[in-house]
């Protein structure tokens, strides 16, 4: 678990130190005091990357040269790690082993509310974490897709060779099928964990169904290639590849109702949280590493009953961080860290 964290010139923090305890740590303070930034620091220290794939140098407090972060982790022997971030890059001292983080942010509700592309993005990010090799599968598939799309556009422009488009078909079938299969396997693992949580909550069964434009041709690549061939003229008309996992959809249903259309904002938020918790459980099981949950603003928009459901679930974890704008009665008994004005830069 995380024992201590030290921040200097990180985001809004001029200089601050925090001590945490086992179990649930509630970080309480008004907006703008740096609740999210503190979780972001923990994520950066544990995962070695920023949350939204932004440049680490953006983490340096405005007007200063470099940010310094330090962390002390226990569980077996105590381990320390320090990171210094500046314009040129970063320097790291020390290494943490066997510990990682999963982050929930209020935006994650877009995996339910958003379009199919946002659900594919969430699914792919999750499967990359739980299935070795999926990153390579995804990379190869996207390379095939870009090449094939370019070949299709050349034919549409009148400067291409249809034989060149066709030479990518077996690759589209092979890598596309692998993406679909690995997504389905990953989703199955996550669904098992989600089932367990929603079962305890009694909110109805949460289903996640993957619908593939490639259909059910697993193990029958020849049939799949013929299906791809039948799309040819439509593809040239549109100037793009119309079949493959880049067109697939994941549908969430809660208790038989469409999560996107029929669920309330609060229910949608619960589903996104259940997803992240299932991801954390699956990572912990597959890697045997300790997973720390970082739950940013997860209690707002929930009624008291749902807040209690979430907190009862979170308190089972070895260590969890929850942020909230004000102190709540339900947070009684947890380790509370109040952010004050003095932390502001």
């Amino acid at each position: 678990m995380i024992e201590e964290v030290y921040l200097k010139d990180f985001r809004n923090y001029e200089e601050a130190g925090f001590r945490f305890s086992k179990g649930l740590n509630a970080i309480i303070g008004d907006n703008g005091l740096g609740k999210t930034n503190l979780l972001e620091a923990l994520f950066f220290l544990l995962q070695g990357k920023t949350m939204r794939g932004s440049e680490p140098k953006e983490l340096v407090r405005w007007g200063t040269e470099k940010a310094q972060l330090g962390i002390k982790v226990s569980g077996g022997a105590a381990v320390e790690k320090r990171i210094e971030i500046c314009e040129e890059g970063r320097k790291e001292k020390g290494k943490l082993g066997g510990i990682r983080a999963v982050f929930f942010k209020p935006d994650d509700i877009w995996m339910i509310k958003g379009g199919p592309e946002s659900r594919r993005k969430y699914l792919d990010e999750a499967v990359v974490e739980i299935k070795r090799g999926f990153r390579v599968t995804l990379r190869e598939y996207h390379r095939v897709l870009r090449q094939r799309n370019e070949a299709i556009r050349a034919v549409k422009r009148g400067s291409g060779d249809i034989g060149l488009v066709r030479s990518w078909n077996p690759l589209l079938a092979r890598w596309g099928r692998m993406v679909v299969e690995e997504r389905a396997e990953g989703l199955k693992e996550l669904e098992k964990e989600m089932d367990a949580t929603t079962g305890r909550w009694g909110v109805g069964k949460l289903e996640a169904r993957l619908y593939s434009s490639m259909g059910d041709f697993f193990g029958e690549e020849d049939k799949l290639i013929r299906k791809i061939e039948r799309m040819e003229s439509a593809e040239i008309g549109r100037g793009m590849t119309l079949i493959g996992p880049h067109r697939d959809e994941v549908i969430f249903n809660l208790g038989g109702r469409s999560a996107r259309r029929d669920c309330s904002q609060g229910e949608q938020k619960l589903i996104a949280m259940v997803w992240k918790m299932a991801l954390a459980e699956t990572i912990a099981r597959n890697t045997r590493e300790k997973v720390i949950l970082l739950m940013d603003d997860c209690l707002s928009e929930l009624d008291r009953r749902n807040r209690l459901l979430v907190l009862r679930e979170l308190e089972k974890w070895e260590q969890v961080f929850v942020t909230h704008a004000e102190d709540l009665e339900e947070l009684k008994g947890f380790n509370k860290i109040f952010l004050g004005r003095e932390n502001r830069g």
């Binding site: 095939v144 030479s167 077996p170 690759l171």
Partner: peptide, 14 residues
């Protein structure tokens, strides 16, 4: 690589 595979498929067709 995928480019090598596609090239092989294209040449086989010819």
């Amino acid at each position: 690589r995928v480019e090598g595979e596609a090239t092989a498929a294209y040449l086989a067709g010819l």
